[in-house]
């Protein structure tokens, strides 16, 4: 996963942009300032992928840095929850992506559960990053299955091969059988995962 330092490192160029550095200083001095700065990030910093870290868009990374500028402590989970609650889709995605970088423990699991309930592939994908380690196995398996169902690439699931188990293999096999019976194609990454899981049980 992307560490805080790596993110900061590749983000220096954008952070030097006047708007973001001012915004970071304001949030550090007055945490409530993040409420009106957070929605405005895309308009000021842009939304293109970062050249040095293309898995992060500029707005996601800038929002992650704003969240990291919040003082850690008891108030942090509530503040993060409200930014997600009142966020548009881009803000919600940024919060989800930043969760593993923040000191929150398991407090933000309800946000993942909310994102997994949506049918928005951007949110579902962001919910299955490294912070999904806090999800219980049943919820995690259902979320992975939903990714397959919605046609998302499985590369969005952190630690997929480490965590996938026989129960997930059974669920995936059922979905694959249904799709094949209907004459519909199944993505190659699903076959690969299923093959890996079946080989593991047989071996």
């Amino acid at each position: 996963m992307t560490g805080v330092d790596e993110l900061r490192g590749v983000f220096v160029a954008v952070a030097e942009d006047g708007w973001l550095s001012t915004a970071l200083a304001r949030v550090a001095a007055d945490p409530a300032a993040i409420n009106h700065l957070f929605p405005a990030v895309g308009r000021h910093c842009g939304r293109a992928p970062l050249a040095a870290l293309p898995t992060w868009s500029t707005d996601d990374a800038a929002r992650a840095l704003l969240l990291l500028a919040l003082p850690p402590g008891d108030g942090l989970p509530d503040r993060v929850e409200l930014l997600y609650r009142y966020g548009d889709a881009a803000e919600k995605r940024a919060v989800l992506r930043a969760l593993p970088l923040l000191v929150l423990g398991a407090a933000a699991v309800p946000l993942l559960q909310d994102a997994i309930r949506t049918n928005d592939p951007r949110l579902l994908a962001a919910a299955l990053g490294p912070y999904a380690a806090h999800l219980d196995d049943a919820t995690w398996r259902q979320a992975v299955l939903k990714c397959v169902f919605m046609g998302l690439p499985l590369s969005c699931v952190a630690d997929l091969y480490q965590r996938a188990d026989a129960e997930l293999a059974t669920m995936l096999a059922g979905l694959v059988a249904e799709r094949e019976a209907a004459g519909r194609a199944v993505a190659e990454d699903v076959h690969a995962l299923l093959h890996h899981l079946t080989a593991a049980t047989e071996g």
Partner: peptide, 10 residues
């Protein structure tokens, strides 16, 4: 232009 899916996705 068919920019249909996963705009802004990862």
């Amino acid at each position: 232009a068919g920019n249909s899916i996963l705009r802004g996705g990862d």
